[in-house]
């Protein structure tokens, strides 16, 4: 069953189209990787799915509901089931890491304070940031901020997790650990994950399905194995170049 379904989506910025005709699906309980070269519209697609940008036309269905016609309160209810890891973390700089992770927990649950504190520690320990619990985002490195943001994104054990470039800025060991964590979340919590990335080792390790964007449309959709033997030069080259350092 599809947890996200995008049909004939057209979107862009002001008069410049970025996505011309994108149709794709992400299956429930699976990791779907949206990939493509820089500037192909991966992040734009994510922003349009979660309505940070208004799409020009087309349809976006999430949890079998059309999100483009939802009013604000309805969509906010839906967002309780969604976690988003932004490309640069997007942590609130004026509060500590623990307070950042606490935001969705305070907003959407009635957990008692001691349980909430333990939950925050659990989430931060999962991303190996327990020691940084009382630190401000500005006191952390870029990779640590990214991991803290992931802890915040999965604070509520969302049914659907969006990750925009999760491996960017991370060392290979941490990146592999993060991939492993995303796989465990899928396997044990049944979490569906949509990963925006062009990090080929991560894609090979985690993705159940890939959607390759090119020229504002979907060039390929299928498994990694199918992609690598698709006969499409652009995709085969993408994987060939990407695994050179793997």
């Amino acid at each position: 069953m599809s947890i996200v379904s995008v049909t004939h989506l057209e979107a862009g910025y002001e008069d410049t189209p970025v996505l011309r005709d994108v149709s794709m699906t992400a299956e429930e309980g699976a990791i779907t990787a949206v990939l493509g070269t820089s500037g192909c519209g991966k992040s734009t697609l994510l922003k349009n799915i979660i309505r940070l940008n208004d799409a020009w036309s087309g349809s976006v269905r999430m949890f079998d509901e059309e999100v483009m016609v939802m009013d604000e309160p309805e969509f906010n209810q839906l967002l309780k089931r969604v976690g988003v890891l932004f490309q640069n973390g997007a942590l609130l700089n004026s509060i500590t890491i623990a307070e950042n992770v606490a935001i969705p927990l305070e907003q959407h649950t009635r957990l008692p304070a001691p349980v909430r504190d333990h939950l925050i520690r659990i989430k931060l320990a999962l991303v190996e940031l327990e020691e940084a619990i009382d630190k401000l985002p500005s006191e952390l490195s870029g990779g640590m901020r990214k991991r803290a943001a992931l802890a915040r994104a999965m604070a509520l054990d969302p049914d659907l997790l969006f990750c925009d470039e999760p491996s960017a800025g991370l060392d290979p060991v941490t990146a592999a650990g993060l991939d492993n964590l995303i796989c465990r979340l899928r396997d044990q919590l049944g979490m569906s994950v949509i990963v925006i990335t062009h990090h080929v080792p991560s894609i090979i390790r985690t993705a159940d399905k890939i959607v390759y964007l090119s020229d504002g449309g979907v060039l390929f959709s299928g498994t990694v194995k199918e992609a690598r033997s698709s006969g499409i030069e652009q995709i085969e080259r993408f994987f060939r170049e990407g695994v050179k350092d793997y």
Partner: peptide
Amino acid sequence: IDSAGVALIETLRSR
């Protein structure tokens, strides 16, 4: 069980 449930167990263990 989800992570909130594990947090409850950890809270009990801690006490």
